[in-house]
């Protein structure tokens, strides 16, 4: 085999890093820097970009759609990080502690699989499933409501500007909730059962044990789930593209979709790049916090 001599014997391990580093540079680092560069220009994608300094960012500050898109993102953080974590804790504790212990781990894991199933769907496919269920005329949800006599509750779920964001949040909750359930249940396996026994001897209720024994023990998992889900919520694109295309009337636009629109529909490439850069900074700050706290936890 022809292996560079440097790898033989005492040569450096750096050679092994070479392909990965080159690929990373070409596919991630250079494009990322280009994007930052483009954000300082006005450019339609053809011809020469025109340098305009910070103008795009100044425009962003005054752009109502931009701020609205971040407000919608906050809703998605609630639906994809906060609520799934809270609900996931209850379900995981119930399945692990109650169902698992009294009815056998097999039943608990079957139920866990049911909660996790939406997570394996391509989000675009989940979006199609739900657009179809939520269709205003003959969608399954409205049909159910009419069938049980709640006709007044039937709505144009994705087409009503006041409702659309809430509907999207509901769909995202359905998609997301299985992830914390699985992570928390595996974290709970780590908890020393004798802690629970001791608490039980002291007369602690189920709720008391959950709050004072289980929760502190799986804090690392809770933290990881909150952060990864928050980052995922900030990046959301596919569900918006498939469910609402940011509509109706911009009621569900998020930063990632707004930048996509500027890149490819409005051909305001510089402006789109500025939106993407702001989103990146936000996500990187969150990641830095994540690394910080994780390192502190390890020490």
């Amino acid at each position: 085999m022809s292996v560079p001599t440097a790898i033989r014997g005492r040569g450096s391990y750096l050679w092994f890093l070479l392909p990965g580093a080159l690929l990373l540079t070409a596919v991630v680092l250079v494009p990322f820097l280009m994007n930052v560069g483009i954000s300082f220009t006005e450019w339609s994608g053809v011809g020469e970009p025109e340098w305009i300094g910070l103008d795009n960012y100044r425009r962003l500050v005054e752009d109502g759609t931009f701020w609205a898109s971040f407000r919608h993102n906050v809703g998605l953080v609630v639906a994809m990080a906060v609520l799934p974590t809270a609900i996931g804790l209850v379900i995981a504790a119930g399945l692990f502690d109650y169902v698992g212990k009294r009815f056998g781990p097999r039943r608990a894991s079957v139920l866990r699989a049911c909660f996790y199933l939406p997570q394996v769907l391509p989000i675009a496919v989940a979006g199609i499933v739900w657009t179809w269920i939520l269709a205003p005329q003959d969608g399954a949800l409205n049909e159910v409501l009419r069938a049980v006599g709640l006709r007044s509750l039937a709505h144009n779920w994705l087409g009503d500007p006041d409702l659309a964001l809430w509907t999207v949040m509901g769909v995202m909750l359905w998609i997301q909730v299985g992830y914390p359930v699985v992570i928390f249940m595996s974290g709970m396996q780590r908890v020393d059962p004798s802690l629970h026994e001791a608490a039980e001897l002291d007369g602690a209720s189920w709720w008391g044990r959950f709050w004072h024994v289980t929760l502190p023990q799986i804090r690392p998992e809770v933290f990881v789930v909150l952060l990864t889900c928050t980052i995922a919520a900030l990046k959301v694109f596919a569900p918006i593209y498939v469910l609402t295309r940011g509509g109706p009337g911009g009621a569900t636009t998020v930063p990632s979709y707004y930048s996509f629109q500027n890149f490819f529909e409005k051909t305001r490439v510089g402006y789109g790049a500025a939106i993407a850069t702001v989103l990146t900074v936000l996500i990187l700050v969150l990641t830095a916090v994540f690394l910080r706290v994780q390192n502190r936890g390890e020490r």
Partner: peptide, 20 residues
């Protein structure tokens, strides 16, 4: 650097990748 590459939103890469 690898971790950052993994967390970067694809929106921040898409246009240059399209262009390149």
């Amino acid at each position: 650097v690898f971790l950052i590459a993994n967390t970067l939103p694809q929106e921040a890469l898409v246009y240059p990748l399209y262009f390149l």
